[in-house]
Design a protein around this nucleic acid. Structure first.
Lengths: 232, 232
DNA sequence: ACGCCCGGATTCATCGGAGGAATTCGTGCG
DNA sequence: CGCACGAATTCCTCCGATGAATCCGGGCGT
């Protein structure tokens, strides 16, 4: 076990033991290094690793703190590794996205707030206006698409689901997604799919919300490269 | 942007640009540091962070290599952050596990190999023998429980699902899970649930496999602490 | 010729120290 | 009382040196 691993394990223990909690400040580098029996260099490597993982947050001139440890924060590092995969590997990731967002849509049907419902409607109307223009602003439509999906995922009420979806369907992933979807009618179809999901949410119909979201994401998935459906 | 972030971004770019691929060796610390315009210390912090994320693998006396970049490898860091959450935060994680494993069970029904089916049966028989003893070996049963779920998840055929389930339902999480399940009959019930899933898989009945797995995991979920079902 | 041992070269791991940069907070002035 | 200034604190970056693990090729014996 390397010194750095000892640092990671040590900080982890300090958190699980309750010595450190969200928002708490760590001892200064010199003290913590001495306490863990490592040099400042090794300590910094471990702290940096935990920073990348979203566990710690260092601020120059201030100190090192434990983050909120929210799933959203902790899963953000996942986006990095997802984006590392090329276009060919996108399919299994999108399948996970589909399953999770479908579940979230079903849950959201029963618990979506009036405010979120209204916001989702506004997003859809904005998207409709974008599509009505002669020269469609594709970037703006992608923005609206992202916003709609985020609202639904959030209203599912499971922060882990929200964080995972956010990590998988991040910026890079979505751009890849739409790169292969510029055939005629793709955006209009997406718009109709979204509206169908919205109606199901407004009606509080969980089953309809599930089916609509699943169908929509299956549509998207078919445009991805890779084995269509293991046709071997 | 800190020097370390530049290192992470630089290596990421080298990978996405195709300059580096799985198994490839990175330049030695001195050269790479010079190329990225940072000191060896900063370089090491960045490389270490990528090592923790499962992207790089350093071997003393040999060199630094890009890993296979398999989802299983890349998601392993997720287990660390999942385990960081206490018992109270386990419920949303388990909900994700339930949804993903349910999907995997449905997929597995159509594509499980005879070998995997036989291995799963062996695991279940082993578990049954464990339960038949006067003094039940709980650790052995947990082991069999883990093995059964892993086989089903793997046979779902989606490596991302497998990796996520593995990360969420890791060792620490499972131990927490069973800590609150030592009431009489819990293990026997689990065994019956598993056998029902197995029969569905053997019959190639995807819907049955889904339902059985979902019901089993809902059972488990009810024993977790936290809001029963948002009864507000 | 073949296998084994050993020593040098290579590479990462760890350490210690020094100066710089950003933040915080108390002090003193207006 | 408000504000600017500066000292203290803390993390950031760099440099050089030593140790540890691995790899590779030469030399030796059989």
């Amino acid at each position: 076990m390397s010194r750095t691993d000892e640092v990671v394990a040590g900080v982890r223990r300090m958190i699980t033991d309750g010595e450190l909690g969200p928002g708490d400040r760590l001892p200064v580098e010199k003290d913590l290094a001495e306490r863990l029996g490592v040099s400042r260099g090794s300590l910094r490597e471990g702290v940096r690793a935990l920073t990348v993982l979203g566990v710690l947050d260092t601020r120059q001139g201030d100190g090192t703190y434990v983050t909120s440890l929210d799933p959203a924060r902790l899963m953000s590092s996942l986006q990095f590794v997802v984006d590392l995969h090329g276009d060919t590997g996108a399919r299994p990731f999108h399948a996970v996205r589909r399953v999770l967002e479908t579940e979230a849509a079903g849950l959201a049907a029963h618990r979506i707030t009036p405010e979120a419902l209204a916001e989702a409607r506004d997003v859809l109307e904005q998207a409709a206006r974008t599509l009505a223009q002669d020269d469609v602003d594709h970037a703006a439509f992608i923005e609206a698409d992202t916003a709609f999906h985020r609202i639904v995922a959030e209203q599912g009420g499971n922060p882990v689901v929200t964080a995972l979806v956010e990590a998988i369907a991040g910026r890079t992933f979505r751009e890849r997604l739409w790169r292969g979807r510029h055939e005629a009618g793709a955006e209009e179809r997406t718009q109709r799919d979204h509206e169908a999901v919205w109606r199901a949410l407004a009606a509080g119909d969980a089953e309809a919300a599930r089916v609509r979201m699943a169908a929509h994401l299956l549509d998207v998935e078919e445009t991805l490269p890779g084995p269509e459906a293991t046709e071997d």
